[in-house]
């Protein structure tokens, strides 16, 4: 397996509070890794550290063998690690088209031009193609603030995928999305991910989504990795049952994986 991302003894403290400790995780090329854990387990802290939003207190983060500790979000993203957010991070008062155009404008130029127009026919066509891929073309002229949660999430992920990352980190992609829409959303995202060949690490609370889409599962508890392995294996782990998922889940994980 080709290790794309490795963290070694990664830790983050906020004063006396330990948000993450001793996190050793490896993500290989093409893997789709689910991350579960109760609130405050360190999942988002982990993503924030990997993407340069938070500096680790100690430990190492290697991307394709090179350390990325100390790099800012821009550098991490340009290196090939992109992310979406628990609360979609968009430009709320602008239209969906403008959101995508801005993303293209920034992506295409290291130094932003001052005079050449952004909303050219070619750029608009490209934006339309992207929105079509994510099935949200009909919302193109709408202001983001008026969009349903699911569309916002899709747009957030579409913007993250624009740079064709090697690893995509999704922070609760289906949170706030209607139950009926969550699988459709994940299907759309996974289709785009497969097309690009990116590895995915996604934090999720919905065990059905985890079971259906992940090829590997990591369970976090109290800032530490509690279990890491095949989905059914982690779900069957007694400690995971006790501390993360509870005992009463009745999901046939093998069947869900086959279904996906």
């Amino acid at each position: 397996m080709n290790a794309l991302l490795e963290t070694r003894s990664l830790a983050r403290n906020f004063g006396a509070v330990t948000a993450a400790a001793d996190i050793d995780v490896t993500i290989n090329a093409g893997e789709i890794v689910g991350v579960i854990g109760s609130n405050g387990a360190g999942k988002t802290t982990f993503i924030n550290m990997v993407t340069g939003y938070l500096a680790p207190s100690s430990g190492e983060i290697l991307f394709k063998g090179k350390s990325i500790v100390g790099k800012n979000p821009r550098q991490v993203m340009r290196a090939g690690i992109c992310r979406s957010f628990q609360v979609a991070q968009l430009f709320p008062e602008l239209t969906v088209l403008d959101n995508v155009l801005i993303a293209y404008g920034i992506m295409k130029h290291k130094i932003l031009p001052l005079m050449s127009p952004l909303a050219t026919k070619a750029n608009i066509q490209q934006a339309e193609q992207l929105l079509e891929e994510y099935g949200i073309t009909s919302y193109m002229a709408e202001t983001v603030v008026t969009l349903p949660q699911g569309v916002r999430k899709l747009l957030d992920i579409a913007l993250a995928m624009l740079r064709k990352p090697e690893i995509l980190l999704l922070d609760e992609p289906t949170s706030g999305v209607a139950i009926d829409d969550k699988f459709e959303l994940m299907d759309t995202v996974m289709r785009a991910v497969r097309k690009s060949g990116a590895a995915v690490l996604f934090v999720e609370h919905d065990m059905e989504v985890i079971a259906r889409y992940s090829t590997r599962l990591i369970a976090f508890y109290d800032g530490r990795v509690l279990a890491d392995g095949a989905v059914s294996e982690v779900m069957g782990d007694e400690k995971v049952k006790e501390l993360v998922t509870g005992h009463h889940l009745d999901i046939d994980y093998e069947r869900e994986v086959e279904h996906a």
Binding site: I102, G105, L112
Partner: peptide, 28 residues
């Protein structure tokens, strides 16, 4: 007039709306 239609012009509005997203798109 041209500046407001350029990537830098749009980026200004983007900064007003959401700085985090601008950084995660790759601009300072």
């Amino acid at each position: 007039w041209r500046y407001l239609r350029s990537p830098m012009g749009y980026a200004g509005e983007a900064v007003r709306e959401n700085e985090i997203r601008v950084e995660y798109l790759g601009a300072s």
